[in-house]
């Protein structure tokens, strides 16, 4: 009994102390990182790489067309696809929340199909199958219309789920307050619920914009005129005429020019939203 109450000496740790171990482990990680970097740098053939990917005169040739034509078209395709996707996604989200069963099922089926298919297949479908099935009909806007439709169909499936989640995240008291003031259900949705839902879903919608921006490269498979080329097609065409890959690198940098700032904006918005919750 008296033995048990006697304060025990803290057990002595054998070997390294905790802080020592931590320092050692971090040191090992740095060594591995530097070693990998050296191995990579030493084994790559930098001259050939530079020759193939970073020819200043070829890069110079690309300006200003890469911006005024290719980047402009990429942005145009993206925005038109986003607009179609947003409009269609909104309709599907509202159908998904409808009290009418068939609307809900239809919206569910749409979402499952278009989320499950590669975007490339949808581009091919729009480019090939639709003209075959409806000969003589033209999709309004030519290539621009086709791209807007193809990108919009894909984006709508994702956006519908995002919008639905946003609408459901608006507290129930909001619709009750609106209805008690005499708003009809549709008016309450438009004036009160949807504006609040959009605040909630602005970051994921911007993310979707980034995804669309990259997916617009699939226009490659539609067959476009010289004037309709976007970054990827433009870069690839130039790469084959110059037999050099520099245009691909420049096109890639143009994508990053847009996607990195957009990603930054999304993180800012998310941080702000997090703060508002607190």
């Amino acid at each position: 009994m008296s033995d048990a109450t006697k304060p025990e000496a803290p057990p002595r740790r054998k070997g390294l102390s905790r802080s020592h171990k931590r320092r050692l482990s971090r040191g090992v990680q740095y060594v591995v990182f530097v070693a990998a970097l050296i191995a990579f740098a030493a084994s790559a053939d930098w001259d050939r790489l530079q020759n193939q990917f970073a020819q200043a005169d070829i890069a110079e040739q690309m300006f200003p067309d890469v911006i005024t034509l290719a980047l402009k078209n990429t942005v145009l395709y993206t925005l038109s696809g986003f607009a179609v996707g947003l409009a269609l996604g909104m309709v599907i989200a509202l159908m998904r929340l409808s009290s009418v069963g068939p609307y809900r099922w239809l919206a569910g089926i749409y979402i499952e199909i278009f989320r499950g298919l590669p975007a490339l297949l949808i581009f091919i479908f729009i480019g090939v199958a639709v003209p075959l099935a409806f000969p003589g009909t033209e999709i309004i806007g030519g290539t621009y219309g086709k791209v807007a439709l193809a990108l919009g169909l894909v984006a709508a499936a994702y956006m519908a789920e995002t919008i639905r989640a946003g609408i459901q995240a608006v507290p129930k008291g909001q619709i009750e307050a609106a209805r008690s003031l005499g708003f009809s259900p549709a008016r309450a949705m438009i004036s009160i619920i949807i504006p609040q839902a959009f605040r909630i879903i602005l970051p994921p919608l911007t993310n979707e914009l980034v995804l669309l921006f990259k997916d617009s490269s699939l226009v490659l498979f539609l067959g476009v005129t010289l004037e309709e080329r976007e970054l990827s097609k433009y870069g690839r065409d130039l790469a084959s005429t110059t037999a050099n890959s520099t245009p691909i690198l420049v096109a890639g940098l143009c994508y990053l020019l847009v996607t990195i700032p957009l990603g930054f904006v999304v993180r800012r918005m998310e941080a702000k939203a997090q703060e508002a919750v607190k």
């Binding site: 507290p171 008291g173 909001q174 009750e176 307050a177 609106a178 209805r179 008690s180 003031l181 005499g182 708003f183 009809s184 009160i192 504006p195 609040q196 605040r199």
Partner: peptide, 20 residues
């Protein structure tokens, strides 16, 4: 019902102001 509700004001426990 929307017309009828205009005649009746309602105040909630959680206020339910429109935050936007």
């Amino acid at each position: 019902i929307d017309a009828a509700r205009r005649r009746i004001g309602m105040v909630f426990q959680q206020f339910n102001l429109f935050p936007h």
